[in-house]
Computed example of a mutant assay.
Amino acid sequence: ISHHGAPGITPTETENRHHLCAIMEACGFRRYDREWWHYTLENEPYPDTYFDFPIA
């Protein structure tokens, strides 16, 4: 049930997933079809840089 368009979730959950997807894609993110919560920035400004720092 983790992928976009998965059967077996409530109508509210379906609506929320569509809403999130529309917002994220409008802001330049591409969805990962197998996980409704997973998005990747299309035009990553630092594609070859790995950022590793503590978040406080």
Results as ranks from 00 to 15, higher is better:
I1G: 10
S2C: 07
S2R: 13
S2E: 09
S2K: 13
S2A: 12
H3D: 08
H3R: 12
H3I: 05
H4S: 05
H4C: 03
H4D: 04
G5E: 00
G5V: 00
A6M: 05
A6S: 14
P7C: 01
P7G: 05
P7M: 01
P7D: 06
P7T: 07
G8N: 03
G8Q: 04
I9L: 06
I9Q: 05
I9T: 08
I9F: 05
I9A: 04
T10Q: 11
T10H: 10
T10W: 09
P11Q: 13
P11A: 12
P11S: 10
P11E: 13
T12P: 00
T12C: 10
T12S: 14
T12D: 14
E13L: 11
T14C: 07
T14G: 11
T14A: 15
T14R: 13
T14F: 04
E15D: 06
E15N: 05
E15T: 03
E15F: 04
N16A: 07
N16M: 02
N16F: 00
N16K: 09
R17T: 00
R17I: 00
H18I: 11
H18E: 13
H19M: 09
H19K: 15
H19T: 15
L20E: 08
L20I: 14
L20F: 05
L20P: 02
L20W: 04
C21F: 10
C21K: 15
C21Y: 11
C21D: 15
I23H: 05
I23S: 02
I23V: 12
M24P: 11
M24V: 12
M24Y: 13
E25V: 15
E25F: 09
E25W: 09
E25A: 07
A26Y: 10
A26D: 15
C27S: 14
C27D: 14
C27K: 15
C27A: 15
C27V: 08
C27E: 15
G28Y: 07
G28E: 08
F29A: 06
F29E: 06
F29V: 11
F29I: 10
R31Y: 06
R31P: 04
R31G: 08
Y32M: 11
Y32R: 12
Y32H: 15
D33A: 03
D33W: 01
R34L: 13
E35V: 09
W36N: 08
W36S: 11
W36G: 02
W36T: 14
W37F: 09
H38E: 01
H38D: 09
Y39I: 11
Y39F: 15
Y39T: 09
Y39G: 07
T40S: 10
T40Q: 10
L41Q: 03
L41T: 05
L41V: 04
L41I: 07
N43R: 08
E44V: 03
E44P: 02
E44T: 02
P45D: 00
P45T: 02
P45L: 00
Y46N: 04
Y46S: 00
P47C: 01
P47M: 02
D48L: 02
T49Y: 00
F51K: 05
F51A: 02
F51P: 03
F51I: 07
D52N: 15
D52S: 13
D52R: 13
D52Y: 11
D52A: 14
F53Q: 07
F53K: 08
F53V: 14
P54Y: 12
P54T: 14
I55K: 09
I55P: 04
I55W: 10
I55N: 07
I55E: 12
A56Q: 07
A56H: 09
A56R: 10
